[in-house]
Design a protein around this nucleic acid. Sequence first.
DNA 1: AGTACGATGTTGACGATGCCAACATTCATT
DNA 2: AATGAATGTTGGCATCGTCAACATCGTACT
Lengths: 214, 214
Amino acid sequence: MSSEEPARGYHHGNLREALVEAGVALARDGGPTAIQLRAVSRQAGVSHNAAYRHFANQEDLVAAVAERCMHQLGLLMIERMQVVTVRDRVRRAQERLQAIGLAYIEFARTEPGWFRTAFTSAQPHPSAEKARETPPPADERFTSPFALLNERLDELVEVGAVTPARRQGAEFVAWSAVHGISSLLLDGPLRNLPEPEVGPVIAAVLGGVNHGLY
Amino acid sequence: MSSEEPARGYHHGNLREALVEAGVALARDGGPTAIQLRAVSRQAGVSHNAAYRHFANQEDLVAAVAERCMHQLGLLMIERMQVVTVRDRVRRAQERLQAIGLAYIEFARTEPGWFRTAFTSAQPHPSAEKARETPPPADERFTSPFALLNERLDELVEVGAVTPARRQGAEFVAWSAVHGISSLLLDGPLRNLPEPEVGPVIAAVLGGVNHGLY
DNA sequence: AGTACGATGTTGACGATGCCAACATTCATT
DNA sequence: AATGAATGTTGGCATCGTCAACATCGTACT
C-alpha cells in the first residue's frame, strides 16, 4: 500500500490519517484488539504517544478505525449490488436485496478482522433528534449498510413487490438475520461448521428473510 | 456469594472452580476482557500464576468462563419457557418458541457482560463426526441454546403447526434473527436506540421469524 | 514408616501495553 | 521577528500475560 513519505521533519504532516490507516491494516488481520496505540505509532514511523495529539485514548482510535471498516462493508455491498443487471424492475429489486445481504455475509467471512472491528464500538444508530445535531457526511449517508438496506426495501415497495404493511420493521428483520448468521458463522457456535454446510445455511437464512417479506 | 474457605493451607483444594467462578463474576460487568489471569487469581485469594496449573493460558480460562455464560443463557431460556402454561398444544408450542427467543434477547440486554463472553471464543458447533469424539456432558445437552431451539421447532412440527418442509433450516433462520437483533442492540449500530423504540423492533423481528415459519 | 515423585502454589523476572507529565520543535498569526 | 498553539518526543509508572525456578503438599510404592 502507501508507505509513509520518506522525507519528513519533526512533524508528520498527516499523522491522524496515517494512524487510522495503520489501524485499518492492523485490524485486517488481528481484529479490534490489534489496534494498539503503540503499534499504529510504530507503523506510522512515529514515536509512541504521538497518537495522543489526535485521539483521546485507544478507544477513540478504535472508533475511528471501526468507522472505516463499516465504510468498507458499505462499499462491498454497493459493488455487489451494482452487478445486478436484470431488466425486470421487480426481479431487479429482489436480486439487489439478495446481493447486499450476500455481500454482508461475504464481508464477514473474507474480512473477519474488519467485520469484528466494525461492530465493536460501532457508531450509535442516529435517532431522529440526535441526527440533527451531527449530520453525517454525505459520503457516509450513501455507504451506511443500514441506509443501503432501507433503500432496497423501499425499492421493493416502489415496484410493488412488497406491501407497505410488510415493509414496516422489515429492515430490522432482514438486518438481524443477516448480521446474526454472519456473527454465528464467524465467532459463534457455528464457526467450525464444515465448509460444505455453510452455503445451505446461508441460503436458508436468506430464503427465510425473503419468505417473511411476502 | 461464596467467599473462599477461610482456613486453607498451601493448597487451595478447589482452585480451578474458584478461578472460573471469579471469571464469571468479573465477566458479568466488564465482559470477556475483564477475565484476566491476575485478576481472577487475586479474587480467589491466590498468587498470580497459580492459574497456570489449571489453564494453559488466558484464552483457555476465557473459554471455560464462556461455557458457563452459555449455560446461564440456556437456563434463562428454560426458565422463561416453563412459565408458558397454555393448554392448547399448538399455541403452547408457538408461545414456547416465542419465550425462548425473548429470553435470548433478554439475556443479552440484562447480562451484557455474560452475553458478550458467551459469544467470544464460543464452543464450535459439533459437526456430526466431531460430536462422536467428545460427547457433551448430559447437562450441556439440555441447556444448549441451540438444542433448546431445535426442540421447540420439532415440537411445532409435532403438533402440526409447521410443515416438515418449512422446518428445514428454520433453526438457522430463527437463531440468526434473534442473535442478530441481540448483537445489534448490544454492540451494533442500534445500541443507542431510544428505549421506547426497542420493544417494537424486537416485536418486528420475532414477528418476522414467526411469519417465515408459516 | 519412610521416601520419592507428581501435583499444586509461589516468587521473581521480562517484555509489552495504555496513559501521564514534562519537554522539544515547528507552524501560524500578529 | 516573536510568541503561543499545535504537534512530536522522552521517560516513567502501573498493569498484564507468560516463563523459569523454587517451595510445599499429598500419595503411592517400597
